[in-house]
Each structure stands twice: as structure tokens, then as C-alpha cells.
Design a protein around this nucleic acid. Structure first.
Lengths: 190, 190
DNA sequence: GTCTATAGATTGATAGAC
DNA sequence: GTCTATCAATCTATAGAC
């Protein structure tokens, strides 16, 4: 069945995009990992960019679905936020979506860039909503700027990945999260 | 004079590393930008990696010198911190050092990775010192964890670059900085 | 010190057999 | 649908003339 080969190609491209980026990933490497020949890829996809687009869209959807599930539970808003921020992550591999912003070739292609931009914009918006709930429930100070703080939280995660990769250790990531949570919670003591 | 050609090669490599990353930068592109032939590069440097190392070390030293100057002035500690965070930056180009952490090929080479790791580690440490001064001067709450918050501040900047590049706008960067400053200053009202 | 010429490998893609 | 063969272009590096 063709569907299986196509799925393996997308899966391999997802792994390699995460590990090596778009510029650093050759069709040849994808085919080897998927155990397929040249013909298979060009039968199912128009080329490298087309396959990469399928891979990025899949990764983006997964990331968004997982975050939405965590942020939409029945627990108090602040508990959902801290659980989301502290959730176990594959820190040293970086963010499979955010990391792509550093690839100039990928960002130059609107089809590849769009799912990256949309996913991070959605996440900022969703966190702003939950922060708004927390303020409304009196869990956080009413003076808090939900939009700005939401962007700060996403930036802390994204930057935490950068610092962890630089250090070769997840410690900076955990420290960055602990730091921003400390500020958020002590700022709420009003 | 050979020194001038070598300098132009390093300068060109610095620009291209910032713009395209290590994997995305070919010696050919560097030579074209520098206006030099193949022979010049292999006369002055052992190869692409060697030239890149000189370029990264130079960029790292500049970044560190500039940050240290801003963080070491006579102004109150919190003022120095806010001035550093709000300083004008070429946001859409990303951080010329932090952005390199996403390049797997570069990070696999200890010679190329070391200056990246050291620069970001130094910055976290220097910000922790200034935060410590602020606490000691009573400008910030004594309960503040200087090391953790320092890492949060660097992560906010690094993640701000990621979000700005994704959005194609500097707005998320400015929002992330405003958010973290809001938390830091309101948390200090003790 | 700088140049051009060249090398062998790899890139992304196409052709055509099966 | 999948394979192998092949393509022109580019990659990083070396050789050798000047």
C-alpha cells in the first residue's frame, strides 16, 4: 500500500527536521531513514519542500493539540499554567517548531513558514486566555498584562531550549521556567 | 597585505553565519561576498570550520563587551537591567550567537560550540550579579532568586527573537520584554 | 598571497524499466 | 508504486601556476 510508504517518509522528515533543520536535511537522508527509493518520494510528493510541509503541519498539529489539552482542563487556571510550563520535554532536542525559525531557507518559503508562525501565535493567544481566567478568578493580580505575560512565557520556553542546547544540559531550561514562575506567583501576592 | 583579505573573509563569514547559519553557508558564498578567490581562504584558514571559528569568536567577544559595558555603568542596578533589556536590537535577524545553537553541524564541533556556550553562560552569570546588586540595594525583593531570574531574562530575549522571526514582526519580542519587566518590577513591590 | 583549474562527493530532481 | 540509473549543479577541498 502506498499510504504506508508516504507515512514513513513524513515520519522520517519530521525526525530529521527536528534534528538537523530544513537546510541540513537532504532527500537522500530522508529516503534512507524511511527505507525507500528515490522514486517513492517523488511519486507521493512534489519534492523536498512539499514533503517538509506535510511534516511540519503534522508536528504543529500535534504540538497544538497537546498544549490545548493541558491548558483546557478543569483545574484552576494557575495550576494549568504551571503544569504546562513544567511538563516533561525533550529539552536538548529543542522545540520542533520554534527551532525552525532559525532556518533561513525554510522561513523564505511561505508554505513552510505559515504553520510555524500560526502555531506560535496560537500558543501565545491561548496562554493569554488562561492568564485572563486566572486574573478573573483572583488567582493573579488584576494589573497583570495577560497578552504580554503570555508572550513572555512562550519566549521563556523557547529561550530555555536555546540556553539548554548551548550548555549541553537541561538545567538552564529548568532554571528559566522556575525563574518566570517565581516572578509570576510572587507578583500575584497582592 | 594579507591581513586585509583575512579580515574581509572573517567579516563575510560573520554576516553569513548570522543570516544563513553554519550549514547554510558555503565557502563559495563567503568568498564571493569577500571578493576573494578559493586560494585566499585556504591560505589563511584550514577550511570552513576554522574560518567559522574565528568569526564566531569575534562575534561573541563583541556581544560580551557590549553587554558588559551596559551592565556595568554607575546607574542603579534595576536601571541598568531595564536599559540592557530594552536596548535597540536587530530583532528580525535574531541573536548572532543564540541562533547558532539550532545548527546541529556547528554544535557537533566542540571548537565552534565552545564560544557560543561560554558567551551565554557568561551573560547569565553577569545578569545574576546585577540582580544581586539590585536585591542588596533594596531595589528588588530579597526573596528573588537571582540566578534563576537571570536565566529567565536571557531566555526571554532568546525566545523573543524566535517569536519575532516566526511572526515576521518585532512586536512579540517587545511584548516578551515588557511582560518580564512588568513581572520583575511588580514582584519587587514588597 | 592570490589566482584558476580541478577533484570527488553530494545535492535535488528526472527518466524510464519493472 | 517502487526501483535503479542518470543528470546538472553545488559542495568542500587540493593542486599548481603566477
Amino acid at each position: 500500500m502506498s499510504t504506508d510508504t508516504a507515512r514513513r517518509l513524513v515520519e522520517s522528515m519530521r525526525d530529521l527536521l527536528w534534528e538537523r533543520g530544513y537546510t541540513g536535511t537532504s532527500p537522500k537522508a530522508v529516503l534512507q531513514r524511511a527505507g525507500a527509493g528515490q522514486g517513492s518520494m517523488y511519486h507521493h510528493f512534489a519534492g523536498k519542500a512539499d514533503l517538509a510541509q506535510s511534516a511540519i503541519v503534522e508536528t504543529a498539529q500535534e504540538m497544538r493539540a497537546k498544549a490545548d489539552a493541558e491548558l483546557s482542563g478543569p483545574a484552576p487556571a494557575v495550576e494549568r499554567l504551571t503544569a504546562y510550563l513544567r511538563r516533561e520535554r525533550d529539552v536538548l532536542r529543542g522545540c520542533p517548531i520554534g527551532g525552525l525559525t532559525q532556518d533561513a531557507e525554510l522561513m523564505a518559503d511561505p508554505q513552510l513558514r505559515a504553520p510555524v508562525a500560526e502555531t506560535l501565535a496560537w500558543l501565545r493567544g491561548r496562554l493569554a486566555e488562561v492568564l485572563g481566567e486566572a486574573v478573573a478568578a483572583g488567582e493573579l493580580a488584576p494589573t497583570l498584562d495577560a497578552s504580554a505575560v503570555a508572550t513572555t512565557l512562550v519566549a521563556t520556553l523557547q529561550g530555555g531550549y536555546v540556553l539548554a542546547r548551548a550548555a549541553g544540559s537541561r538545567e538552564p531550561f529548568d532554571q528559566a521556567v522556575a525563574g518566570v514562575l517565581g516572578l509570576l506567583l510572587s507578583a500575584s501576592e497582592h
